[in-house]
Measured scan of single mutants.
Amino acid sequence: MIINNLKLIREKKKISQSELAALLEVSRQTINGIEKNKYNPSLQLALKIAYYLNTPLEDIFQWQ
């Protein structure tokens, strides 16, 4: 199972779901689904999230 800290990191950086979704060219619902662990992002999307949040990938997504 993958645990993610996306919501915590996104809120710490004061970025809304809508703003992050626009940067990543995905829907706000996609961001919401990832934050709620409804599904895991593709590797490409995970890397883009880490890039736009300027945060190491392993700080956002962790195996458990």
Rank of each mutant, 00 (worst) to 15 (best):
P41E: 01
E25D: 13
A22K: 12
P56Q: 07
I3A: 08
F61W: 05
I2N: 06
E25P: 06
A22D: 12
I9M: 08
I3Q: 08
A21N: 02
L8Q: 15
Q44D: 11
S27P: 15
I49D: 00
K14W: 06
P56A: 09
E35L: 02
K14S: 12
K7E: 11
Q17W: 03
G33A: 15
K7R: 15
Y52S: 07
N54W: 06
W63C: 05
T30N: 04
S27L: 03
E58C: 09
Y51N: 10
L47K: 12
K48E: 07
S16I: 04
L23Y: 14
G33Q: 14
T55N: 04
S16F: 04
S42E: 06
F61P: 00
I34C: 01
L45R: 02
P56W: 03
L57Q: 03
Q64D: 14
L45A: 03
L53P: 00
N4G: 03
K13F: 08
I31M: 04
I49K: 00
K12D: 10
D59P: 02
S16D: 06
S42F: 04
A50L: 02
P41N: 01
L20A: 02
Y39E: 10
L24T: 14
Y51R: 12
A50T: 04
S18Q: 14
K38D: 11
A21F: 01
N5K: 07
L23C: 08
R10W: 02
T30Y: 15
K12E: 13
K12G: 12
K7L: 08
D59R: 09
A21W: 01
I60M: 06
I2F: 10
L23D: 08
S42M: 05
E35F: 02
N5M: 06
V26F: 02
S18A: 15
E58D: 14
I34V: 06
P56Y: 05
I49N: 00
I3M: 14
N54I: 05
N40Q: 10
L45T: 05
L57G: 02
S16C: 05
A22S: 12
I49S: 02
T30A: 08
I15T: 05
I31L: 13
I49Q: 00
A22V: 10
E58H: 14
Q29H: 14
N37H: 10
L20K: 00
K13P: 01
E35C: 02
I34R: 01
K38F: 13
N40Y: 13
W63R: 04
K36S: 15
T30S: 06
R10E: 00
L43K: 11
M1V: 09
P56M: 05
K36V: 12
I31W: 02
K48A: 10
S42H: 07
A22F: 11
N32L: 13
N40M: 14
E11H: 11
R28I: 15
I15D: 00
L6T: 03
S27D: 13
P41W: 03
E19K: 14
I34N: 00
M1A: 06
A46N: 01
S27R: 09
L45G: 02
I9Q: 06
E35G: 00
L24P: 00
A50H: 03
P41M: 05
L8I: 15
Q64P: 13
E11T: 13
L45P: 00
K36G: 12
L43Y: 15
Q17K: 09
L45E: 04
R28Q: 15
T55C: 08
I34E: 00
A50E: 04
L24H: 01
S16Q: 06
L47H: 11
R28P: 14
N37M: 06
E25W: 08
L24Q: 00
E11Q: 12
I31E: 02
Q62S: 10
N5S: 05
S16G: 08
E11D: 09
L47W: 10
I15R: 04
D59G: 07
L45K: 02
I15Y: 09
Q64K: 11
L6R: 00
R10I: 03
R28V: 15
I15N: 02
F61G: 01
Q29L: 12
Q29M: 11
R28M: 15
K14N: 15
S27H: 09
N37C: 08
Y39I: 15
K36R: 13
I2C: 08
L20G: 00
E19Q: 14
E35R: 01
K12Q: 14
S16K: 10
I34Q: 00
K12L: 13
L6M: 11
P41V: 12
K13L: 14
L57V: 12
P56D: 08
Y52N: 06
M1I: 14
Q44Y: 09
L47D: 06
I34D: 00
L20D: 00
E19A: 13
P41Q: 02
I2M: 10
K38G: 07
S16L: 07
K38S: 13
N4F: 02
A50R: 03
K38L: 15
L24S: 07
R10H: 01
R10K: 01
I49L: 07
K13I: 08
V26A: 04
L57D: 02
K7N: 06
E58G: 13
D59A: 11
I15A: 03
A46M: 10
I34K: 00
M1R: 05
L45Y: 03
K12I: 11
K38T: 14
L53I: 04
E11S: 10
L23T: 07
R28T: 15
E11N: 10
S42N: 10
K13Q: 13
K12C: 09
E19V: 10
L43D: 05
A22Q: 12
Y52Q: 09
Y51A: 10
N54T: 09
E35W: 01
N32H: 12
I49R: 00
L24Y: 00
K48P: 01
K13V: 09
A21E: 03
K14Q: 12
Q44K: 12
L47S: 10
Y52C: 07
L6F: 03
K48T: 06
I15H: 04
S42D: 11
N5Y: 06
W63L: 05
K12A: 14
E11A: 09
Q17Y: 04
S42G: 09
A22N: 11
P56F: 04
F61I: 03
E58W: 10
R10S: 02
I15E: 01
I31C: 01
L20F: 07
L45S: 03
E25H: 15
K38A: 13
T55F: 05
I9H: 07
K7A: 10
Y51I: 08
I60W: 02
S27T: 11
S16Y: 04
P41K: 01
I60A: 02
N4H: 03
W63M: 05
A22T: 12
L8G: 09
T30Q: 09
Y52M: 10
E25T: 09
Y51F: 13
K7F: 06
E58N: 14
K12P: 02
L8P: 09
I49W: 01
L6Y: 00
K36M: 15
L23Q: 11
Y39D: 06
N37W: 12
R10T: 02
Q29D: 15
